[in-house]
Lab assay of single mutants.
Amino acid sequence: MDETGKELVLALYDYQEKSPREVTMKKGDILTLLNSTNKDWWKVEVKITVNGKTYERQGFVPAAYVKKL
């Protein structure tokens, strides 16, 4: 869990989004888990830094590609 009590997951593999509802992740990324009720796709939040500014983006990743921490 992070400092706000949200559950975290670890990306076990790289994943490139294939639709606007998904998010890209790299092996080793730590993501915030938002919803894991679907056994195949989990909703996560990723933080992306571009030119020194951090953005948060929500989307789905394959559940088999992440592990709860």
Score class of each variant (00 low, 15 high):
Met1Lys: 10
Met1Phe: 13
Met1Glu: 14
Met1Thr: 15
Asp2Asn: 10
Asp2Trp: 04
Glu3Val: 09
Glu3Ser: 11
Glu3Ala: 10
Glu3Arg: 05
Glu3Asn: 11
Thr4Gln: 14
Thr4Ser: 15
Gly5Ser: 13
Gly5Tyr: 11
Gly5Leu: 12
Gly5Asp: 12
Gly5Cys: 13
Lys6Trp: 09
Lys6Glu: 10
Lys6Arg: 14
Lys6Leu: 13
Glu7Thr: 13
Glu7Cys: 12
Glu7Phe: 10
Glu7Ile: 15
Glu7Arg: 12
Glu7Met: 12
Leu8Thr: 08
Val9Asp: 00
Val9His: 02
Val9Met: 03
Val9Phe: 04
Leu10Glu: 10
Leu10Val: 15
Leu10Pro: 00
Leu10Trp: 06
Leu10Ser: 04
Leu10Lys: 07
Leu10Ile: 15
Leu10Met: 14
Ala11Met: 02
Ala11Ser: 05
Ala11Asp: 01
Ala11Glu: 01
Ala11Phe: 02
Leu12Pro: 00
Leu12Ala: 03
Leu12Trp: 03
Tyr13Ser: 08
Tyr13Met: 13
Tyr13Phe: 13
Tyr13Cys: 12
Tyr13Ile: 08
Asp14Cys: 05
Asp14Lys: 02
Asp14Pro: 05
Asp14Asn: 07
Asp14Val: 01
Asp14His: 05
Asp14Leu: 01
Asp14Thr: 04
Tyr15Arg: 02
Tyr15Thr: 01
Tyr15Phe: 07
Tyr15Leu: 00
Tyr15Pro: 01
Tyr15His: 03
Gln16Glu: 13
Gln16Asp: 14
Gln16Leu: 12
Gln16Trp: 12
Gln16Arg: 09
Gln16His: 13
Gln16Ala: 12
Glu17Ser: 15
Lys18Thr: 12
Lys18Ile: 06
Lys18Glu: 06
Lys18Gly: 07
Lys18Leu: 09
Lys18Cys: 10
Lys18Ser: 10
Lys18Asp: 05
Ser19Gln: 08
Ser19His: 14
Ser19Asn: 13
Ser19Val: 04
Pro20Trp: 08
Pro20Asp: 13
Arg21Ser: 13
Arg21Lys: 11
Arg21His: 14
Arg21Tyr: 13
Arg21Ala: 12
Arg21Asn: 14
Glu22Val: 04
Glu22Asp: 05
Glu22Met: 05
Glu22Gln: 10
Glu22Ile: 03
Glu22Tyr: 04
Glu22Phe: 05
Glu22Gly: 10
Glu22Pro: 04
Val23Lys: 01
Val23Phe: 06
Val23Pro: 00
Thr24Gly: 08
Thr24Cys: 06
Thr24Met: 04
Thr24His: 04
Thr24Ile: 03
Thr24Ser: 15
Met25Glu: 00
Met25Phe: 08
Lys26Gln: 10
Lys26Val: 09
Lys26Ala: 08
Lys27Leu: 04
Lys27Tyr: 04
Lys27Val: 06
Lys27Asn: 04
Lys27Gln: 08
Gly28Phe: 04
Gly28Ile: 00
Gly28Tyr: 04
Gly28Cys: 08
Gly28Trp: 05
Gly28Met: 03
Asp29Trp: 09
Asp29Gln: 12
Asp29Glu: 09
Asp29Leu: 04
Asp29Lys: 02
Asp29Phe: 03
Ile30Arg: 05
Ile30Cys: 06
Ile30Tyr: 05
Ile30Ser: 02
Ile30Gly: 01
Ile30Leu: 08
Leu31Pro: 00
Leu31His: 02
Leu31Glu: 00
Leu31Ile: 06
Leu31Arg: 00
Leu31Phe: 06
Leu31Ala: 07
Thr32Trp: 11
Thr32Ile: 14
Thr32Phe: 09
Thr32Gly: 08
Leu33Lys: 01
Leu33Asp: 01
Leu33Tyr: 01
Leu33Phe: 03
Leu33Met: 03
Leu33Cys: 06
Leu33Ala: 02
Leu33Glu: 01
Leu34His: 03
Leu34Arg: 04
Leu34Thr: 04
Leu34Gln: 03
Leu34Glu: 02
Leu34Lys: 05
Leu34Trp: 04
Asn35Tyr: 05
Asn35Ile: 06
Ser36Thr: 11
Ser36Pro: 06
Ser36Cys: 09
Ser36Ala: 12
Ser36Gln: 09
Ser36Trp: 07
Thr37Gly: 10
Thr37Tyr: 08
Thr37Trp: 08
Thr37Ala: 12
Asn38Val: 04
Asn38Phe: 06
Asn38Glu: 11
Asn38Ser: 12
Lys39Asp: 13
Lys39Pro: 14
Lys39Ser: 11
Lys39Thr: 11
Asp40His: 14
Asp40Val: 13
Asp40Met: 13
Trp41Asn: 02
Trp41Asp: 00
Trp41Arg: 03
Trp42His: 02
Trp42Gly: 00
Trp42Thr: 03
Trp42Leu: 04
Lys43Asn: 06
Lys43Met: 15
Lys43Tyr: 15
Lys43Ala: 08
Lys43Gln: 13
Lys43Gly: 05
Lys43Leu: 15
Val44Arg: 00
Val44Pro: 00
Glu45His: 07
Glu45Ile: 12
Glu45Phe: 04
Glu45Thr: 09
Val46Lys: 15
Val46Leu: 12
Val46Thr: 15
Val46Gly: 09
Val46Tyr: 07
Lys47Pro: 13
Lys47Asp: 08
Lys47Ala: 09
Ile48Trp: 10
Ile48Met: 10
Thr49Phe: 11
Thr49Pro: 08
Thr49Gly: 06
Thr49Ser: 12
Val50Pro: 04
Val50Asp: 09
Val50Trp: 08
Val50Leu: 13
Val50Gly: 07
Asn51Gln: 11
Asn51Glu: 12
Asn51Thr: 06
Asn51Gly: 14
Asn51Arg: 09
Gly52Val: 03
Gly52Pro: 02
Gly52Lys: 05
Gly52Phe: 07
Gly52Ile: 03
Gly52Met: 09
Gly52Asp: 11
Gly52Arg: 05
Lys53Ser: 11
Lys53Tyr: 15
Lys53Gln: 14
Thr54Cys: 10
Thr54Lys: 08
Thr54Gln: 11
Thr54Leu: 14
Thr54Tyr: 10
Thr54Ala: 13
Tyr55Ile: 15
Tyr55Val: 15
Tyr55Ala: 11
Glu56Tyr: 15
Glu56Val: 15
Glu56Trp: 15
Glu56Asn: 14
Glu56His: 15
Glu56Gly: 13
Arg57Phe: 04
Arg57Thr: 06
Arg57Ile: 07
Arg57Met: 06
Arg57His: 07
Arg57Glu: 05
Arg57Cys: 06
Gln58Leu: 05
Gln58Ile: 11
Gln58Cys: 08
Gln58Lys: 09
Gly59Arg: 01
Phe60Ala: 02
Phe60Cys: 10
Phe60Lys: 02
Phe60Met: 09
Phe60Glu: 04
Val61Met: 01
Val61Phe: 00
Val61Gly: 00
Val61Glu: 00
Val61Asp: 00
Pro62Trp: 03
Pro62Val: 01
Pro62Lys: 03
Ala63Thr: 05
Ala63Ser: 14
Ala63His: 03
Ala63Phe: 02
Ala64Asn: 14
Ala64Ser: 12
Tyr65Lys: 06
Tyr65Phe: 12
Tyr65Ile: 07
Tyr65Ser: 09
Tyr65Gly: 06
Val66Pro: 00
Val66Leu: 15
Val66Gln: 01
Val66Phe: 05
Val66Tyr: 01
Val66Met: 05
Val66Ile: 08
Lys67Gln: 14
Lys67Asn: 05
Lys67Met: 11
Lys67Val: 15
Lys67His: 09
Lys67Leu: 12
Lys68Gln: 08
Lys68Phe: 08
Lys68Asn: 06
Lys68Thr: 07
Lys68Ala: 07
Lys68Cys: 08
Lys68Gly: 05
Lys68Arg: 13
Leu69Pro: 02
Leu69Arg: 03
Leu69Asn: 03
Leu69Phe: 08
Leu69Ile: 15
Leu69Cys: 10
Leu69Gly: 03
Leu69Lys: 04
